[in-house]
Write a protein that binds this DNA or RNA. Sequence first.
DNA 1: CAGTGGTCTAGACCACTAT
DNA 2: TAGTGGTCTAGACCACTGT
Lengths: 241, 241
Amino acid sequence: MVKNKFQMIYEQIAKEIQNGTIKAGEFLPSEHELRQQYHTSRETVRKALKLLSEQGYIQKMQGKGSIVLDMSKFNFPISGLVSYKEVSEKLGHRSKTTVISLREIELDSSLKAEFYLDESANGTVWELVRVRDIDEEAIILDKDYLLTSMVPDLTEEISENSLYEYIESELGLAISFAKKEITVEIPTKEDRTLLDLEDYSLVVVVKSHVYLEDTTQFQLTESRHRPDKFRFVDFARRRQR
Amino acid sequence: MVKNKFQMIYEQIAKEIQNGTIKAGEFLPSEHELRQQYHTSRETVRKALKLLSEQGYIQKMQGKGSIVLDMSKFNFPISGLVSYKEVSEKLGHRSKTTVISLREIELDSSLKAEFYLDESANGTVWELVRVRDIDEEAIILDKDYLLTSMVPDLTEEISENSLYEYIESELGLAISFAKKEITVEIPTKEDRTLLDLEDYSLVVVVKSHVYLEDTTQFQLTESRHRPDKFRFVDFARRRQR
DNA sequence: CAGTGGTCTAGACCACTAT
DNA sequence: TAGTGGTCTAGACCACTGT
């Protein structure tokens, strides 16, 4: 699957930490030892350790070694661009996705602005509206806009499964980065109609601009959550100053 | 200040991007050229570019080069562990911090759990309560808990300025990483008393567990925001699968 | 094809931590 | 002092992009 040596080492060690083969609080073998174990150079080992550190698996300490962190304290960070399907599978939620509507619409001014397109641009986007049920309650309203120029064929069936899977595996597009913005807003009529909002007077809105490897923006997602069920967890490292 | 070559290169290029010396959509010089410009090796150049890429300055494209991204689209991500003072300075907000209370309290069960301490542990923590005014309105309630064993002396004066500055510069402690959690809750009486909540029936709560380089947890922060003023922006890259 | 970035190597020297 | 991670080097080969 992945052929890079440093990715292999990363995955191997990550697995050992998840297994409990190496426990929180213990030190990894030194970079020198890992170099021998994996028959590789030190820089390659260090690339793997850098990844582990960024993902919150380990903490590197100069002069001492790399200690394994207790990731159970961090319970599943949702950061780092993961799709709803990937997250909910990890959590083992009883979730269901219903496609409310899927249609091709003309780019209007507001969409052009969101896609940073020129006002003179024209074309169409897919507008996809989905509701996520968790434990039999309609909790999340997902509104997606995708440029039809990049995703020509989209069906309700694909939308019920994972968009990302289809885009990455079938279309071969490489999703690279995103800007996410979390705000709190007053529910729209659509929110009230489609979600089980109970008495809540606000919804949490996660707006994402998603970009491909070639820096073209191809997706805009607005994820509207019932506030009591919303939870965002992030693991962040402080940059050296 | 920073002596590492790759950090210097990173800062230099970052500055040129912020200046507009290199504009969004343009390509950086190739790694080969940068190596010559900075009289260094290619791996060192690559370390700098890796950082730029992680921070959202550039996008690397194999076979083509490194293109400068339009960061104005991302307007100031707040992720990556930056203190309130650092953020509000960047934004140029008219903000004011008021210390409501600062006292030393015994660790109770709930705090021990938050600090992942054994139930048999004992000791004290600083409990610091501050209100942040933005444009003359009380918008954010910050509740901090710091282990007194690590931060023996804390004064109201320090608390009004930046805690992090004091901790890093004065105490020489190295803040390394944090877990952040964003949820939405019903306001407490304290929230209602101290904040200008208007008619809002919910507050956004950002809870952070902050760790030092040696992996000891030393701070717990609960930042409670009036929902209409809350905004969290994040730039995330998708990990290769 | 030439030019670009991606991976990997073997080795050097430095800074920090322990004993 | 020995062992650890942090930085830097010079070079090799590969994969991808454009012409």
